[in-house]
Every structure is written in C-alpha cells, then in structure tokens.
Design a protein around this nucleic acid. Structure first.
Lengths: 234, 234
DNA sequence: GGCGCCTGTCACAGAACTGCAATAGAAGGC
DNA sequence: GCCTTCTATTGCAGTTCTGTGACAGGCGCC
C-alpha cells in the first residue's frame, strides 16, 4: 500500500509542485490549506506522515503540531516541517516543538522524498521498544516497572513519566518548560520549579541504597539523564 | 539503503536462523563467530547495529562491548545483547555494560527485529547535528556538554554560550562588544572588560591538564577560536 | 470519616555563578 | 630603555539558581 502523506501548505503553486513530486515518488497525497483543515484530514484520512508548513494562515504550524501531539491517535504521527529560512529553522530546532524533522525552503524534491521515507520507516519500525536501559536502570514500559540493578524502584506516576521521557532521550538536556510540556502536558499550568521537586523525588527513589546519581543538573538549562562516563557519542 | 546488522554468535545454527529472519526483515547481515572477528567486522563493515551474544569463545560479549565503547567510531554504535536466561539478563542489566538493550533466549524473531529497528531508529534520531568540533574540543548542544579529548569539561552557563558562539564562527575574531551582544544579549549592561574574565575562566576550564590553548587573543580587536596549526600557506 | 498516597507550592539554606575592581603582566611605539 | 596601551589574573561580594524539607489539598479506598 502506498504511504500516505498529508501536505499542509497554503501556497497553491507549491502544493501542486509537491503533489507532482510526491506522487511520482509513490506517495498517496492529500492536501490541506490551513490548520483546521489539516486537523480534520488527519482524523479522517489517517496519513502516515504530515508535511507541515511553518507559516500558515489562521493557525500556525507550530500550533497544529502541538495539537496533534496532544491527541491520542496522532501523537506518534511523524511530522516534517517546511520552514522558510535558517532563522526559523533555528526556532524549530531550538524549541522542542515535537517535530520529527524539518526541511528549509528552497529544498530539492528528492531530498524531501528521502526524508519523508526515512520518517515513515522510522515510525513504522515498531512503536518503540517497550524497554529502556541506562546504566543499571531499566524501565519496562509495558509492565510499568523500574529497576535499579536488582532492586525494584517504586515511582509515582509523574516520576515514572518523567524518567521515561528523560531516558527515551538519553543524554539530552530538557528545560523545565520542555519537561512540563512533555510530561505534564502542553497546557498544564504548573510552576516550573515543581519540576525540581519531582526530580528530587526521582533521584531519591533511584539512589536509595547509595547508588550514584544518573540525573544531571545543568544549571540554568535543565536536567538530563546520562549514561555515566561515556564521552560524547560521535 | 538497508540497515546493516552484525551478528556475533558462535552457534552456527543460530546464526543461520538469525540471518534468515533478519534478511527477510530487510536487514543486510554480516557474521562474526568470535570477539576478535567481531571487532574487525565492525571496523571494516560499519554496521548500524550489533547483535551480540553474551557467551562467546575467547573474548566475552561483555569485553567486546567494552572495547567498542572505548573506540572512537564505535562508541555510539547500538548494541543488543543476546543472553541465555534471566540470570544473565540480570548481569547485563546490573553491570554497567553499555548495552542498549537485551533479548533473552529463547526469543521470537519478530521481537528481535522490532528491537533492532527501535535501536537503529533511536540512534539515528539521537545523533543530532547539534555538535560543534574544533581540534579536540567538542560541544554537544543538545546534551549541553563539552569535552576536550576524552575529558569532560565543566563550564558555567556563560562560558558555555561563549564557547558555543566562538566555535560556531570558528576562526572569526569578535570584539568584546560583539561578544556582549551575542552572548550576554543585545541590551545587557556589562563592562566590556568582563568578557576578559569569562575568557579566562573558559581557558582555565579547557586547558586544565596542560592542553594547548585554542582561544586566540587579538590585541586591540578581541578573541577568536581557531583550528590549530594550519599555517596560512604562502 | 479516616487513611494512605500523590501532587504542587513555598520558604529557607546552600551552592554555583557573575561582574567588578585592583593589581600584575605583556606588547608595541618611540 | 621607557612609556603607553592593552590584556591576564585574582579575590571578593552580590546575585541567581538549585536542593531540600515541610505542608496542605485532592483523590481513591476501606
């Protein structure tokens, strides 16, 4: 079956060009010209990947992205951003928008196709492992279990999600705001400092029994979970 | 291009079975029957992921894993352990092996494939382009981490931003005022001389342990970071 | 209701970082 | 050599950020 890509873009000429290239590359293509339409199409047409313009009328691409990430069925839907230039690219990269990849205009059609395919391949290769490892800490997502070495670790729901998120992106530093978005949900209204408290509870639970701390604090930046003492992987 | 998996396993029958299943699942497969061969194959064939038996003749799986982690190119190579039963699984988990995941025998081929794909996906999405290199100094922006050679370097937030900025524009000289604008922010009200102090702190942190200085002072102009010892020809 | 568990907030203590100023040192012009 | 100009280094005090313990409210359960 052909992979289905939803193109969300308000510039008609660009849409025509994209449709031509994507169909030539073996995709089934659907179009949406603004954010509202995009959300509708996602719900009814169930694309495998969304190609999303950053600048859209009515609702911005970023907002669409957020809404998709919040919805239950579309949470894992791969999203590729189309951005106008590097300045905006920085924003896509800098903010944790939940985008999976981005391409800056102008772009080559073949590059675009390659990236779309890569995204689809990535997303279809299993909905992620149900197990995460880091040093001697293991999470079994299916069983909702955490162990440190041989010891069972008991975590509250929030600490569990926090740990999962940090371990899913091992090494990466998340700001308190990013963590609130990812772990508490995009629209929660919670003090940023509350993250500290949960980090503390997480540390306390993990380090009980004198184990070393795998949670790294990065001053004025946030928190990360590290594989201990491996230099930057390259 | 097909993802490449290196199977390291001494039991021939198992290798045959694995090859059959993995190729059916779209992997390119290479084999190694002991540790030495494995290391060779990694170096020459550059697999995307290694499937490593825990029990191997001559050199144990654990040892291979360690050596791979120590080498520069294979440091980030995802490794999936094959272990005989839960007792060994505990060791994989308990020791700080550097394994990314493990599967216990007997296993279902589809589970194995799913985990391999998950590992590859994770490692490809994680290997961000958010790195800056200069000589033996590396910055990983996502991880907020700096290394010099194999040593981790701790920097305060300001020094981190300063180094990032200088390395993003390798070789270029910035005046104190330019650095204040770029690193401290457009409208900050800080003495220009303060830049000196942070440059000092940066140098001190980077050169700890007697490394050569990569920060260049340009009298009456400012500072720059250079790729070392490439003399201007002519 | 009483109980245990989880959560968000606050206040305080302590650690880390920052900017400045004073002094010492280096580079260049004459 | 001498003077001027610019940079390096250091100590310190103020500020900012994080760690931690305590506490009250919410929720489900018995």
């Amino acid at each position: 079956m052909k992979p289905r890509v939803l193109v969300v873009e308000d510039e008609r000429a660009l849409v025509t060009m994209l449709r031509y290239n994507l169909e030539k590359a073996g995709f089934a293509v659907a179009e949406a010209f603004d954010g509202e339409e995009a959300l509708l199409r996602v719900a009814e047409w169930k694309p495998d990947v969304v190609l999303l313009d950053w600048m859209l009328p009515l609702v911005s691409g970023l907002e669409i992205c957020r809404r998709l990430r919040r919805s239950r069925e579309a949470r894992a839907l791969p999203i590729l951003f189309l951005t106008a230039r590097s300045e905006e690219m920085d924003r896509v990269r800098g903010l944790d928008t939940g985008a999976d990849d981005y391409v800056t205009k102008p772009f080559s059609p073949s590059e675009l196709v390659a990236r779309l395919k890569a995204l689809i391949r990535r997303s279809q290769s299993g909905a992620g492992a149900d197990r995460l490892l880091c040093a001697d800490v293991a999470i079994d997502l299916a069983q909702h279990r955490v162990t440190r070495g041989h010891r069972r670790v008991h975590l509250g729901p929030t600490e569990f999600r926090l740990l999962s998120h940090l371990m899913r992106h091992k090494g990466r530093v998340f700001s308190r705001e990013q963590l609130l978005d990812a772990v508490w949900g995009d629209d929660c209204e919670v003090e940023a400092r509350t993250v500290d408290v949960h980090i503390r509870r997480l540390r306390k639970a993990l380090n009980e029994g004198g184990a070393s701390d795998i949670v790294r604090t990065v001053r004025s930046a946030g928190y990360a979970i590290d594989e201990p003492e491996r230099a930057i992987p390259g």
